[in-house]
Amino acid sequence: QEPLTASMLAAAPPQEQKQMLGERIYPLVHRMHSALAGKITGMLLEIDNSELLHMLESPESLHSKVEEAVAVLQAHHAKEGSHKSG
């Protein structure tokens, strides 16, 4: 799969841009959190496209954003149904 570039993104309509980014980000997220990959990717797609492009080029920044998203998700779930041990 060829790398996604800023010029490729700019040539696509806004809605398609998020789709293109999601298709690249999802498999990377899936390797870290397979069960939550869809939701995490959905959250990440709310970030600016330029930032998402940077994350695709920098595994470290992607990883930290994914961990952030997981923490937010867990807090969200904890509010809806607080039932945990520890």
Binding site: Q15, Q19, G22, G42
Partner: peptide, 26 residues
């Protein structure tokens, strides 16, 4: 009954057109 139809976060599925937050129908 509380509002259990909260769909946040929107879930991304490969191959499915992404609608983002717009997929929340009234």
């Amino acid at each position: 009954s509380n509002g259990s139809s909260i769909t946040w976060p929107p879930e991304f599925h490969p191959g499915v057109p992404w609608k983002g937050l717009q997929n929340i129908d009234p």
